[in-house]
Amino acid sequence: MLGSYDFCGHYEWTFEWFRARGGEPLVREYWDEAIAKDSQTHAAALISAKGIAGMKEYWAHTLAEEAAGYHCTATEKVFRIDMHECPSKGFLIRNGLAQYHDYCDHCMGWIGPMLKRAGFVVDHQHNHCGKCWWEIRATSDAAPPSEPGKLSGEPDVRLRADWEQPTPLDTFRRANDPDDKTTS
C-alpha cells in the first residue's frame, strides 16, 4: 500500500517518473490537473468562495496536520505565510530523497494556477532548504511584496540568519506559474 506517512517521498519520486515520460510539461499538467483540480478541490472551493478568509482556513488546517513550523499573517488585502520548517522538504532532506530536480516548484505548480482561477497573484521565495515565504494578493492589487519584517514582524523568515543558503534562491513576482521565476 502507498501510505500517507512517507507521502512526500513517493510524491517527489512521481514527479521524476512523469518528467522521464513527458518532460516538464507533463509534470506541470500533473500539478494542475491532479493536485489543484482534483486532490485539493477543497482548497480551491474555500479560497474561491471566501478569498483571504478561505486561505486562513485552508492553510491553518493543512499546515497543522502536516506539523509544519510556520507563521501566517493576514490583512484585508494580503495573506502571508512564513515557512520556517517545511514538513515535506524537511522530510526529503532528512531522508536523502531527491529524484526530481526542484521539489519546491510543486507548491507554485498547483497553488499558482489555483489562485489564478480565484483571482490572486503570488510573490514568493524559496531557498531549497525548507524555508520560504508567500504573499498572496488580488490580481488587481499592484502592491509590491513587503520589505523584510514589515508585514509579519519577527516571524519573517527572511530575518533568519540561515535564510541565505549556498543553495539557489528562487524568486517569483506576481506569479501564477512555476516557471515564472528568477534564480539567484
Partner: peptide, 10 residues
C-alpha cells in the same frame, strides 16, 4: 502518523 489528506493526492 501521516496526514490523511494525502490519500486524496494518491
Amino acid at each position: 502518523v501521516g496526514a490523511a489528506d494525502f490519500y486524496l493526492a494518491i
